[in-house]
């Protein structure tokens, strides 16, 4: 049984087909990369999995049961957490409070405020933001805000983490740190699906990659297979890497 599985997942916006009948699966413990040109439907697919949007057609199952139709908070409590392409933090709340929202409401079991605060501090430590715990989240740098979103997602104690371009806009060093962070997340036994444009990062850490173009899955395989795929080179990579 796959951890997450989608069958014929589609989403239209009026006449525009953003995701067209995509089949996909994610297995426990792997890092799956989702790549493709802008507008290929990557973030829409994340929105369908996390229930930010209902699919126009198709079903998504998690741990063997269908989850289509559930509200976002239930998806989160089931163990699917996400970050956002454009950061969506609670800017006026202290950093630690941002993370505490996740540990207080997102875990699926009722935890005390003390316990939630302890988990929040642990996750801040994990993403190396402990020194900024009392600073309003809006005052953090972009790289730190992206880490904060990861910490908030991790605080919900997910089994599956959806990372939407957490490396976009980061410096070379920050990308290295983000790669290290993802490796450490995997080491905790958390399954990761990541959307990314930073090619060397995605090729370096993903076990498997799905390539989308105009809402359609055009390739799937190991990084080496995908990098050698003619169609992928044509529509996305541009040249062999």
């Amino acid at each position: 049984m796959h951890l997450l599985e989608g069958e014929g997942v589609s989403r239209n916006f009026g006449g525009l087909v953003a995701v067209a009948g995509v089949d996909f699966y994610v297995d426990q413990g792997e890092i799956l990369g989702l790549i493709g040109p802008n507008g290929a439907g990557k973030t829409t697919l994340f929105n369908l999995i996390s229930a930010a949007l209902p699919p126009s057609a198709g079903t998504i199952s998690y741990e063997g049961s269908p989850i289509t139709g559930l509200p976002p908070y239930k998806i989160c409590r089931l163990g699917i957490a996400r970050t956002f392409q454009t950061v969506k933090i609670f800017a006026h709340l202290p950093t630690v409070r941002n993370v505490m929202v996740g540990s207080l409401f997102g875990t699926g079991s009722r935890s005390s405020a003390t316990e939630a605060l302890r988990i929040a501090d642990e996750e801040l430590e994990f993403v190396e933001l402990s020194s900024l715990r009392d600073v309003p989240a809006g005052d953090l740098t972009l790289a730190s805000q992206k880490r904060l979103e990861v910490a908030r997602a991790l605080a919900t104690q997910p089994k599956l983490l959806l990372l939407d371009e957490i490396m976009a806009g980061l410096t070379r060093n920050e990308v290295e740190e983000a790669m290290d962070l993802i490796a450490r997340i995997r080491a905790r036994g958390i399954t990761v699906v990541m959307i990314e444009h930073v090619m060397h990062a995605i090729m370096g850490i993903c076990d498997r990659i799905i390539v989308l173009d105009f809402g359609v899955k055009i390739a799937e395989g190991t990084p080496a297979e995908v990098a050698a795929d003619k169609k992928v080179i044509e529509v996305y990579l541009g040249e062999e890497i």
Partner: peptide, 10 residues
């Protein structure tokens, strides 16, 4: 602060 993020945080 951010309703969407609140919903996705449980």
């Amino acid at each position: 602060e951010y309703e969407e993020a609140a919903a996705h945080s449980g």
